[in-house]
Design a protein around this nucleic acid. Structure first.
Lengths: 146, 146
DNA sequence: TATTGTTATACTCTATAACTATA
DNA sequence: TATAGTTATAGAGTATAACAATA
């Protein structure tokens, strides 16, 4: 019944990236099921934790997303009161996004689950190999827009 | 204007995998734009090239997809006459899928474009690093279902 | 009863185009 | 004119549930 996957597919980078991405989504979802947060939402909150106040267009640029996607992302987090928008007094076209106190608390609550997810995801690799993988992927993607 | 991405995100594996996957899709699409084929369709055709006759359920298992997804995938390729379904005489519940002559020709036509895409995608890495990356990803995903 | 495949339906993620409000 | 953000719409990609045919 089981079909042996030929090397022509098993060693294709697109296949490997798709599967790895899929596994990552699955592991993250399982570990954070109690928190009602998606991976990219968590990523946005981390970004706001580091930068405190960002325009939506800056978020889009940093995360490699379209501005419309960021609108929906911020909408979803604002509904949970984890982030807040306000007009930038210096440029009233722009919306400044920041974590709320509730958002900071949520982030703190969720982090341990994310650490566990990371552990499970990376369990097959040694510390050194994990760094190697990250390094290779960084170099693979930074050619992109530059 | 440009926002510096903090390491807390830039070095997160989920982020890196998402970006790498995104870049791979983009590069593949650009190089195969003349052929009207998606990456996972190409992957399925490679699988059929290696195995000649497979049940849809075997395809689903091999590629890590749902059976319904395979139904739609085969539908799309059958519309272009690149694959054909027929009932398996030995088990009339099952559909055997195989490349058609036109499918084999299409695959041969598309392959050079895919080779170019692969070259562009992997340009930032040396041969040795490419093998390393593949090896690390294989080990990351083979824990999955096992 | 279990399995193969199909259909209907829906959800996630993302993007394009047209719009508004500012600059 | 150009930019920031929103809305409507749509397209991938994938999945769940109910179903028909077959084992």
């Amino acid at each position: 019944m089981s079909v042996c996957l030929p090397d022509s597919i098993r060693m294709r980078l697109p296949y490997l990236l798709a599967r790895a991405h899929q596994r990552q989504l699955d592991v993250f979802a399982r570990h954070t099921a109690a928190f009602d947060i998606a991976g990219r939402e968590y990523g946005l909150m981390l970004l706001l934790e580091a930068h405190h106040h960002l325009w939506q267009s800056q978020i889009a640029e940093a995360l490699g997303l379209d501005r419309t996607t960021v609108t929906y992302l911020v909408d979803a987090l604002e509904k949970r009161d984890w982030v807040a928008r306000r007009r930038d007094p210096a440029d009233r076209r722009a919306h400044v996004v920041a974590l709320t106190a509730a958002g900071e608390k949520a982030l703190a609550d969720i982090k341990p689950a994310v650490v566990e997810a990371k552990k499970e995801l990376l369990a097959p690799l040694s510390e050194q190999e994990q760094d190697q993988l990250r390094d290779l992927l960084v170099r693979l993607i930074t050619t992109e827009a530059s």
